[in-house]
Design a binder for these strands. Structure first.
Length: 462
DNA sequence: GCATGATCATGC
DNA sequence: GCATGATCATGC
């Protein structure tokens, strides 16, 4: 069957909306339980009637359209989200560096995509899942500027002989995700003798979530920039230039300048300052298009006069059931640090607290940061392994006097563990406990990045 | 002064 | 009610 126009193609695609894969699958491909990528193949073979291939060219070559069948899910709070990243073509490290973006394997194959979204549901067999909607997708101009920059970052790393250090956190929308049967799927790379994991270009899960919400639910994200600006500057440089006029001002002065009520203890105060100085006052940071698509999370850092953070940086409370039931490769904490970019918003105090309890923080600058692969695979992995070991062998939990009360002590990793990360309790009050998978009961715990580690990241801050 | 456990305050 | 960012308090 030949589709002469994209309109014809889309008409055919839309015929599948609302149908389950079982209904579409005329060759009974799905009865063969083990074929991975099977749902996409059902669409290729049964709906569009063409042979499966792994061609470098788009699936519908004459229309320049690549077909992608991809799942979304509903979160507990009812919001739609992509179920996974969208994996595109495999990167040939030896060849990709010889291209420009315009001649790249990514652009040749994926510049126009027919995205067929299906709804993933827990505990439902895949053949019973249904196609929800089909979208003919081309990249919006400003997204494309960010993706071009991402592609440059990836190819530069390959060219520098660092393909084995690629991480999805390096880039904003376009990632280089690992793709292969296992860690043994290694490939040669230029300018280094180290073999690197096979990787594919991918659109990050956060980017796909934004697409799902836009096309399936008509959610509106608010952009902080324009494609014109992105043609001249990277997203990071744009952020730096938006923040730089406020350098050296106190939080109070900034709030006055921006017409934001000064509520330094309010949890929404810093987010409101950020959205205001980005020119989109009141927009929740998660609804800022660029932050949402690139999975950028902000963190406030307050530095003491000596340049060290006032406190270590806390993250989520630990879900010990999850922590002990996952392989390291699929672990929550590993995924978090690989896939999250952090926007550090840095303030400094000019006086010590004991000299002035009402001291003001002054804005010092920002830093976009993601954790280096070596840190994730060494120090963070050590933490993950040590917690697992302690839960398997039993955590030492003791109660000792402290002032007039008893205090709970444990032997989870402390600040001297490995210089990067440690574990500390975090509950609402003395009663805020969790039960560990081994049955022990302990105050809720949280993982932290050491203040000294954070300080070392900010050394080059101008 | 720092490490570490404890808990407050806010916002959903 | 709870998660989370923020910050306190004691003892070494």
């Amino acid at each position: 069957m030949e589709y002469l126009t994209t309109t014809q193609l889309m008409k055919k695609a839309q015929k599948a909306e609302g149908k389950s894969f079982k209904e579409i699958d005329i060759t009974n491909r799905l009865s063969n339980k083990n074929s991975k990528g099977g749902l996409g193949q059902v669409i290729e073979e049964s709906l569009f009637g063409y042979k499966i291939n792994s061609n470098a060219k788009p699936d519908f070559e004459h229309l320049n359209v690549e077909l992608k069948v991809t799942p979304f899910k509903r979160n507990k709070n009812g919001k739609l989200a992509a179920k996974e990243r969208l994996v595109l073509n495999i990167i040939n490290y030896m060849e990709e560096i010889n291209y420009t973006f315009e001649t790249s394997s990514f652009w040749k194959k994926n510049q126009q995509m027919l995205l067929m979204f299906y709804e993933w549901l827990p505990y439902v067999n895949r053949e019973d899942l249904k196609v929800f909607k089909s979208v003919l997708f081309t990249f919006p101009e400003s997204d494309l500027e960010i993706i071009k920059h991402d592609w440059e970052i990836i190819t530069k790393k390959i060219r520098d002989g660092k393909a084995h250090e690629l991480s999805e956190g390096d880039t904003n929308y376009l990632g280089a995700c690992s793709k292969g049967a296992n860690k043994q799927s290694l490939r040669f790379q230029p300018n280094s003798t180290t073999l690197a994991m096979q990787r594919a270009f991918s659109l990050k899960q956060s980017y796909m979530t934004a697409l799902v919400r836009k096309h399936l639910k008509k959610d509106n994200l608010v952009s902080l920039t324009t494609s014109g600006e992105l043609k001249k500057k990277s997203l990071e440089d744009i952020l730096i230039s938006r923040f730089s006029p406020y350098k050296g001002l106190s939080a109070k002065q900034i709030s006055e300048n921006l017409g934001v009520a000064y509520k330094p203890t309010g949890k929404s105060f810093i987010p409101l300052l950020i959205s205001s100085l980005l020119g989109i006052k009141g927009t929740k940071l998660e609804n800022i298009e660029e932050f949402s698509k690139a999975n950028i999370q902000f963190k406030t850092i307050r530095l003491e006069p000596n340049g060290k953070p006032e406190q270590s940086m806390s993250f989520k409370n630990i879900d010990f059931q999850l922590w002990t039931n996952e392989e390291w490769e699929n672990s929550y904490i590993r995924k978090t640090f690989y896939e999250t970019k952090f926007l550090f918003v840095i303030f400094e105090f000019k006086e010590k607290k004991k000299d002035n309890p009402n001291r003001e923080p002054y804005f010092k600058g920002i830093k976009l940061w993601n954790m280096p692969v070596t840190t994730i695979e060494n120090e963070i992995k050590q933490l993950w392994e040590e917690v697992n070991r302690l839960i398997a062998t039993g955590v030492q939990i003791e109660y000792k006097p402290y002032g007039k009360k008893l205090r709970e002590y444990n032997n989870f990793p402390k600040k001297n563990f490995n210089g990067v990360t440690h574990i500390r309790p975090k509950g609402q009050n003395g009663e805020d406990k969790v039960t560990l998978p081994n049955g022990q009961v302990i105050t809720k715990q949280c993982y932290w990045l050491n203040d000294t580690y954070i300080a070392s990241l900010l050394k080059d801050l101008n």
